[in-house]
Every structure is written in C-alpha cells, then in structure tokens.
Nucleic acid binder design. Structure first.
Lengths: 256, 256
DNA sequence: GGTAATTTGTTCGTATGTATC
DNA sequence: TGATACATACGAACAAATTAC
C-alpha cells in the first residue's frame, strides 16, 4: 500500500499496526477505532475509497472476517457509505467547535453551513445538591430546572447534555427549548439576551450504552466530556451544563 | 446499597447502569472507564474509599470477579489502590491543565505539587510539508526540528507529543531539552524568553499500541489529542505541536 | 485482647463469546 | 462449516487482612 498521507500524519499512523489481544477490547473494534481516527484526521478524505477488506486484513495482520466486522460497524454508524459495486466511501468531517466566552452551538453549526437542531430528551425540577448549589451560587435545595438535550447538525447527533438552571428565573425555559430547539433562543424568551461562558472543563471517555442510544454511536467510541459554567452580563452564574460529544464529529478549538 | 454519591452525579450515573454485552468492549473495561470518569470528575475524592467490590457488583449488576478485573486495571494505572481487608482507595487524581496563552507544562505540574519531567524519545530534521509550512509561516521544504517527547508528573507519563520548530532559529534546542527535560528551559537557552499559545485544537481518541508503550496505559483507554500553535511576542509562529494525553491523568480547563 | 463482621485475595468449575484455520 | 484456542463472565466457596465492638 502506497501512502497518500501528508507526512505530518503518516509518521504517526504507520508506525505500528500491532493490535492488542486480551485487553478488553475486541480486535475488530480496535481496527474500527483506528479507521475512525484516520477518517477524522482526513487520512481518508470524503468520498475517497478505502482499501479492500483483503488489503486491510493484510495491513492489520488479521483474518478477513475480523476486518469485515470492523467495516460493518463503521458502516452502521454512517461513517462509511457502502455503494454496491463501487466500494466503500467516507461520509463526513467533524465540526470545528470553538470554546470561548461567546460559544453558541447554533451559531457555530450555522457558520459551517450545517443545520443546527436540538431535541428535548427529558426535563424535571430538582433541588440543588451542594455541588450544584455552589456552582450556581444559590442555596442548597433551591429548585433547579434539569434539562436533558441532544443537539444536532444536519440531523446527525453531535452531543448530549444535561443543563441546570435556577427554576425561578426561567419559568418557560423548557417550553421554549422544546419549541425552538435552541438554548440561546429559549434563554432570550426568558429575558436573558446575552451571556458568557466563564469556564470549561474537558475530559475524554469512551461511550457507554446511554451515549450510544442518544448519539447513535457504538460502545467504546471516544467521547469528549465537557462541563461548562455560564454567567450573565452582571456576573451571576445561571447555568451549569455537562455534555458528552461524539469525538469523531467535533473538533474543539481554543484561541488564546 | 445506599448510595453515597452526591446527588449531582448520582442522577446521571445511576440513570442507567446497563452495560452493553457483545459490543466489542468487555464489561470489565466499561466499568473501569465509568469509574475512571467518576474519579476524574471528583465523584470519588483522593484517599476516599470506594464502595466494596460486592456493592459495586450490585450497582453494575455483574459478578464480583468482573468488578475486580476493572479495579485491577485501574490499580495498574495507579488510579486506585486496593488493600486487603480495608478497601479500595483513590490513589491519584488527574492534573488540572489550564489551556491559556501562557500554558507551560512544567509550571502547571509544579503548581500542583508534583514533579515535572520530560524525556526525549526521538528527534530529527525534516523538511516542512505543506500543512506544517502553512502553520509555521515558512516556505514548504524548510528544515524543521522534529522533537518527540514524553512528559511526566512524578515519573508518571502524562502525554506524548511531537513538536516542530524551524531548525535555523533553534540550533541547540534538542540538546537543551535532552538536558533539562523542559521545553520552556530549552527555548530560553535558544534566546526565546517568552511566548504565547495562540490556538489549541482538542479531540479524543482511544489508545493504540504506541500510546500504550509511551504512556503506560492500556489499549482502548481514552486519549485527549491536542494540537497547539505557539508564537513569540512579535507574533511570529515558531512551533506546532501535537500531543496525546492519557485522559485519566489530565483534566483540561479553559477560562474565558 | 477476643470475636464477629467486613473487605480484598484466591481457586475451583461452567458457560459463552471471539478469532483463527 | 466445524474444530480449536483463548478471553470473558458467572457462581460458590474459602483464605487472609483489617476494622468495629
């Protein structure tokens, strides 16, 4: 196989194709992850044809059945599109997601010529526990709106999140979000025209069953875990949120 | 079993403890990842005792052996420490890693009372390809120093990275880094006293064999992939780096 | 100090899933 | 397709260390 990678990426990708057995991750899944990463790094570009299963089997040093299972998993995720007779092709590039004081999901997605969307998964009123109360600067036990959402770009789920807001301040928030699918719009309906993200914590995880169901990905896929705190222009914290984003579909960027 | 989780996390954590079978990721690994995430989110604090293996087995609906396998994996990573008769304790928390204009590995680690270190893995001179040349604002083909490093906190590997620098500008960079183990110190020896990180890209991946070897983690563990661009005080870009950090050992934070 | 309860550590056996050939 | 080797997961029982009373 001749590599058509830019050297920049080539080095790290081709260094070693060894796969680990007995590490708790099936071989077919390791191969799927490797291909997924290469696709998200543009090693295989959109609409480019992947090598044949036989070639991939040689590359990874495994049985062809094992490669077939990996490819099937990625095809099921919509990452690969199988066109009968022509081959297997790559689907979609990740969204660039800038983290800044003014981070708005809808605006970010729109600016990249994709259609933003949001779906209400669940909502409830719950009393603030100590951790949440401290972050939101309210008394423990204060009623909070708990809003669980999934956000989309072109109907592809990007991230699932839980948002907490002081209930007293945003009486019609849930309704407004359910109608508009936009947090920004829902907050505006509740009298909050502008706000700032003051802190963001980022970690990584691998997908569990809940992530799979909400984000339409597979168990073991990498996930970006993002916790953010937002405050209004008077400096009062009004929101804490935690979201889990499919790493293959977003690329965080931080300018400083 | 009465839960001793703060409610904040309890809700989200206990909503569905269902683990997926046959998805290519062993159940013990799924449990290990879930515990790892909880620990990094401070659900379990340093030196706090985890619920007994029997209780965790009930919580996850699995056999105690399966929990033991998960705990063993985390213990091997130095995250948990199990004592016969006493219980299992949280040994090491992730480093909080603020992303800002002035981000220095050594300073971040030192400020958290851990000992920073760096090891030179490989180095070479290579011509800039188009992607690198554009980022570094040099002509394609310009000689670059390619510096591969692993960085430590208390001798625990935190991240492995590749750094590119214009070769002409930093004649003794490799030498200086090999001696000091600090990029900041090596740059200072080459006449660059101060610099700013202007952009950071963040994604997630799962560990491959190379990550396992360099970072002493297991295949399938979550990885934070971080690409950063640094410029000097005159606004000239002088460095591009890509590093892969063990997600269990760092928690990125961005203030805006 | 003595004893019971708790908790991790170990060893059987059995059934199922994964990967190769 | 079937045979084989190995990893995964469960169940029961018991040993060893620690803690609580």
């Amino acid at each position: 196989m001749t590599s058509n990678l830019p050297k920049f990426y080539d080095e790290r990708m081709t260094r070693s194709e060894t796969l680990e057995r007995g590490g708790g991750v099936a071989i077919w899944r390791q191969i799927a992850e490797r291909l997924r990463t290469e696709i998200s790094l543009d090693v295989w570009k959109t609409d480019e044809r992947l090598p044949s299963e036989a070639d991939l089997a040689v590359r990874f040093g495994v049985n062809r059945h094992t490669v077939r299972r990996a490819v099937a998993a990625l095809a099921e995720d919509g990452i690969l599109k199988a066109n009968q007779g022509r081959g297997t092709f790559v689907a979609q590039k990740p969204i660039r997601y800038p983290i800044a004081a003014r981070t708005r999901f809808s605006e970010i997605v729109s600016s990249q010529d994709r259609e933003p969307g949001g779906e209400l998964i669940a909502h409830s009123i719950e009393p603030a526990d100590d951790a949440l109360a401290a972050r939101l600067e309210v008394a423990a036990g204060t009623d909070l709106i708990r809003l669980e959402t999934v956000r989309f770009a072109d109907d592809i789920p990007i991230g699932a999140g839980i948002n907490w807001y002081p209930a007293a301040r945003f009486p019609s928030l849930v309704d407004a979000f359910a109608r508009s699918g936009s947090i920004t719009a829902a907050l505006r309906e509740n009298g909050l025209d502008d706000y700032r993200r003051i802190q963001t914590l980022v970690s990584a995880d691998v997908a569990g069953p809940q992530d799979c169901a909400l984000l339409d990905i597979a168990t073991g896929d990498p996930i970006l875990v993002i916790e953010s705190i937002n405050e209004d222009l008077e400096g009062r914290t009004f929101n804490v949120s935690r979201s889990r984003m499919a790493a293959a579909r977003v690329q965080l960027s931080i300018d400083s």
